[in-house]
Design a binder for these strands. Structure first.
Lengths: 131, 131
DNA sequence: AGTAAAAATAATAATAGTTACTGTTTTATA
DNA sequence: TATAAAACAGTAACTATTATTATTTTTACT
């Protein structure tokens, strides 16, 4: 098996994700990290983000508007996506803790997680539209 | 305003999506339609799929494994995604009808829909792993 | 039916996002 | 310190998707 070795770059990526709560894209992370490691490569960012997702330390958010986003907040929470500007924000709605178990009852595979995206129009876009 | 004009290709794409229930990718649809319209172009498929999604006649599914899928089944239902093989299937779990309203209470934008993806390992991959 | 304007098309080029490759550097172990 | 494995930077390649353009189809109006 392939054993994991420490890397400063990966630690920095993880720290970056834990500090910012704006669901950054891989490129957003890359630009942040470059301030500390000016010659980190974008491939390294992607490789480590995918690794962190596999390790379960980070979540990848795919919701159909623009590139994937990454989130180190593993607490149970949902997201809201604006169909007009593509922005994404946390939704402090308490998710049903037993939802995975409920879903498991009607699924022959093994379920261990779920992601919910609410779609609509964000406050800013609603304002713009009313002008 | 831009008025919509009929096109045989678009009708065929819609029909294809309503007939097959396997959440095809744009390319899957393209290959299907080519049997009836051998020189339809992939761009036409993408343009019409996006149009149908905007019109609310079709849903686009993005869930982080492989290309987007399309679904003409607008009934309330959820999806299960296998983290190993990337397959996606319907989950006959009755979604909470009031969930949009609940979420609306803690959101300043306007919510009109939500999508939930359950993640795990599908039956086939579970079997493969046990060998 | 014939015609003109708008929309849609096929074919292709271009772009965006992401992954793969390669020679070098870093990390962990002995 | 020497070695092997893993990670790296830099770059090329690839996949999915969108944009461009000249041609065809649709529709509304004679």
């Amino acid at each position: 098996m392939k054993t994991l070795k420490y890397s400063r770059q990966r630690e920095s990526i993880k720290t970056c994700l834990m500090e910012r709560h704006d669901h950054p894209t891989a490129d957003n992370v890359y630009l942040s990290i470059r301030e500390e490691y000016p010659n980190i490569s974008l491939g390294t960012v992607y490789r480590n983000l995918n690794l962190l997702v596999e390790l379960g330390e980070v979540r990848k958010l795919s919701f159909g508007y623009g590139p994937d986003r990454f989130d180190a907040d593993l607490s149970l929470h949902y997201h809201f996506v604006c169909r007009e500007c593509g922005c994404i924000s946390d939704l402090p709605l308490e998710p049903s803790a037993q939802l995975n178990e409920k879903a498991q009852c009607c699924c022959q595979g093994h379920i261990d997680n779920h992601l919910t995206y609410f779609y609509g129009v964000c406050q800013d876009c609603l304002k713009k539209n009313s002008h």
